[in-house]
Every structure is written in C-alpha cells, then in structure tokens.
C-alpha cells in the first residue's frame, strides 16, 4: 500500500461530492482524509483526497473518476512538487501539574492556544500531516479530550494549475 493525494476539480453542484466519494467506496478504496471547497471560480469545487492504494490499482480510481461527467480534472500530487497543509484543533485536559509542559510543547510547535479554561486547553496547529501527527504524539503525554483535523489541502508548486492539465 502506498499513500496518495489527489486533487479533483469538479462542477460546483449538489450531489457531486457524493458521486466522487461513492466511486472510492464502490471500487474498494479507503479514504484517509477529504477536503472540499469552492475555488477561484464559483463554477468549480476542488476536492482533495488522501487515500492508500496498491500502486497498480491507483490507475483504477483515477480513470474511474475521470469518467464521471462532473469531474473536470484529476491531479495526483506528490510530496516534492506540492505544498501540503492541514489544520488541527486539539483539546487537552488542563491541570496544574501539566500546565507548563503543555505550554512548552505548544510553543515548540508554534501551536496557538485558542481556548483556555481551568479544565481544558484548545490549541490550533497547521502544517503538513507529519508535523501534526508528531504534535499529537507529544500531547499523548497529557490527556487528549478531542481532536478535529481538516484533512489535507494541497497545491502544486509553481505557476501551473490543475485547470491547465491535459486530459
């Protein structure tokens, strides 16, 4: 199994996300993360999906997606040629014994404290998924109450865009 990130440019219409995710389900691919939003044009949405697949089967999902009339472009994004980023909110139990250690860890990772009570701290951190995973590992020394991650967003480096891709 290998990790893949693809960006799927689709018509910005209701039901399209369902068509795209349904294809992953039907072809037996497991989605690890998914983000969707409007793009520079209100006509299109951009779906970024990370998933794991056997390399020889990756062709399957990409070509199947391309057959959906609402899919305009599919771009595989590899780590070196793209900028990847994720955002996480993490809620940790606050108590006098842990307080200083939590703050030190947060500072080291440039995580921002966005909510602070006597019982809990919420921190916000952005970065690539590895960095976020590392921060979670660190936080496991304390009591993690809740985590919410956005999933990966990704753009290719340089001036080329997904819309310019050849079919």
């Amino acid at each position: 199994m290998q990790k893949y990130t693809i960006a799927v440019l689709v018509n910005n219409q209701s039901g399209v996300l369902n068509r795209v995710t349904s294809m992953f389900r039907r072809r037996q691919f497991n989605i690890n993360s998914l983000t969707v939003s409007e793009t520079e044009s209100e006509k299109f949405s951009r779906i970024t999906v990370t998933y794991e697949a056997e390399p020889e089967m990756n062709h399957q999902i990409v070509t199947q997606l391309y057959k959906l009339p609402d899919v305009i472009k599919v771009k595989e994004l590899n780590k070196d040629d793209s900028v990847n980023c994720e955002l996480m909110l993490i809620k940790v139990k606050n108590d006098p014994a842990a307080r200083d250690d939590i703050r030190t860890a947060a500072e080291a990772f440039k995580a921002e404290t966005v909510d602070y009570t006597r019982e809990s701290v919420i921190m916000r951190i952005t970065g690539d998924s590895r960095r976020i995973d590392a921060f979670i590992t660190l936080m496991q020394d304390f009591e993690i109450l809740e985590i919410c991650r956005t999933g990966v967003v990704s753009l290719e480096r340089g001036s080329t865009t997904i819309a310019q891709l050849d079919d």
Partner: peptide
C-alpha cells in the same frame, strides 16, 4: 475506449 478497463484485472 475506456481507460479504466486497462490493468483492472489483467496486466
């Protein structure tokens, strides 16, 4: 004519 048929079952 369908790209998705390639390499699906037979390589």
């Amino acid at each position: 004519v369908d790209n998705a048929e390639f390499l699906k079952t037979v390589k």
